[in-house]
């Protein structure tokens, strides 16, 4: 039961990753691409958490936490670059 749910969830999250990636490639404007990148981080966290449940190991948690932190910093830095043309003032 749990295994089946995890496998279906893997499929759904992978589809989400593919859709996001499509937006990243296509995105007509730069904010679109940054948004796609941000969503990609969140989807990667979801995938890692699922992998942790599937393999029954809590090792992947640290990776998820790191992606959450670095993803946020990256998004903010890119937005700041678009707003100011500079990251560190």
């Amino acid at each position: 039961m749990l295994n089946l749910a995890v496998i279906i969830a893997f499929g759904l999250v992978s589809a989400a990753l593919a859709l996001t990636f499509w937006r990243l490639l296509r995105g007509p404007d730069q904010p679109d691409r940054i948004l796609a990148l941000d969503t990609l981080y969140v989807n990667a966290i979801a995938l890692l958490v699922l992998l942790g449940i599937h393999l029954n190991s809590s090792l992947y948690f640290e990776a998820a936490l790191l992606i959450a932190m670095m993803g946020f910093v990256g998004t903010v830095a890119l937005c700041k670059y678009l707003l100011r043309g500079d990251i560190i003032e």
């Binding site: 759904l12 969503t39 989807n43």
Partner: peptide
Amino acid sequence: TGAIFTFIGSLGLA
């Protein structure tokens, strides 16, 4: 539920 919401979020993005 989690996977479906994640998927819908990305669907909206696309």
